[in-house]
Amino acid sequence: MNNEETEFRIEVPCRHLRNKEMYYQEHGQADDEFSSGLFWCGKTHESFGPDGQPSGKNECCRGRSCYIS
């Protein structure tokens, strides 16, 4: 398996996607009933990205015009 295949299989969120849980949880900890559900863009520092659309774990994915891996 080459690196390109590996990268394609692993869904990497945009490097600018942020939420508060990133600041204190262990890597890879799953969402639970205590998750805020609030995301922001580390590029715009707004709740929406450079394209004006909302930030979120389901939104800030490969294929979006402002996505950066």
């Binding site: 009933e33 559900g37 609030l38 995301f39 707004e46 709740s47 929406f48 909302p54 930030s55 979120g56």
Partner: peptide, 11 residues
Amino acid sequence: TAGMGGGVPQQ
């Protein structure tokens, strides 16, 4: 509302 982003409490 949470403004333009976010969700709504569901617990």
